[in-house]
């Protein structure tokens, strides 16, 4: 394929998914600068390897490259950083609501409309659960696509999603209780 055609096809099939690429990178790295670096590097890599793209879902393909870029970058530079506990004070996403009544954590989800603490809870998730939840609940990929993107078997996708969401509920319940006790 000529350079012009390649450019054109890349533009049509991959670039529309830049939002998804950035969103995944942002949730994996948990900060803007790293997310930008990863997104740019991954997109350029995708262009380089575009000849090996076989016309499957462009979004899942690009997200797989974003994920790999992310992991490579962080393994090389800063070890386990993707998984370090998140510092609550350094980010503005997590807004805790002191007015929330406390109660049985089991039923918190069904009672409250305000889930602003969800961002914070998702950021605290171990990275393998976090990426599964982001790919499913924000990107709406199928289990099969998530398995491809994260390079694990389907059963692992299922159990990571189940455990990730369970942990989210535990974190939410902790926030809830913390607020309740503190007030």
């Amino acid at each position: 394929m000529t350079e012009q055609t390649k450019n054109q096809r890349f533009k049509e099939m991959v670039l529309p998914h830049l939002h998804a690429a950035y969103n995944l990178a942002r949730w994996l790295t948990r900060n803007d600068q790293d997310a930008e670096d990863v997104t740019q590097e991954a997109t350029l890599r995708a262009f380089k390897f575009f000849d090996s793209f076989r016309g499957e879902q462009g979004r899942a393909w690009l997200l797989g490259i974003v994920r790999n870029t992310c992991y490579t970058k962080f393994q090389k530079n800063r070890g386990q950083e993707l998984n370090t506990p998140f510092d609550d004070e350094s980010h503005s996403l997590e807004s805790q609501n002191p007015d929330m009544p406390h109660g049985n954590p089991e039923s918190i989800l069904s009672r409250h409309e305000d889930f602003k603490q969800l961002n914070g809870a998702l950021e605290r998730l171990p990275v393998e659960f976090r990426e599964a939840v982001v790919l499913k609940d924000l990107e709406d990929l199928s289990y099969k696509e998530i398995a491809d993107v994260t390079a694990v078997p389907l059963g692992t996708v299922m159990s990571r999603l189940a455990r990730g969401r369970k942990l989210l509920r535990v974190y939410l319940a902790q926030t809830e209780q913390g607020n309740g006790d503190g007030m």
């Binding site: 950035y22 969103n23 939840v133 609940d137 924000l138 969401r165």
Partner: peptide
């Protein structure tokens, strides 16, 4: 509970546009 969590994630978790 699981449905509520999923709905909440869809509604309240930030989607970062590029």
């Amino acid at each position: 509970e699981q449905l509520a969590l999923r709905a909440a994630i869809g509604r309240d978790v930030t989607y970062f546009n590029v």
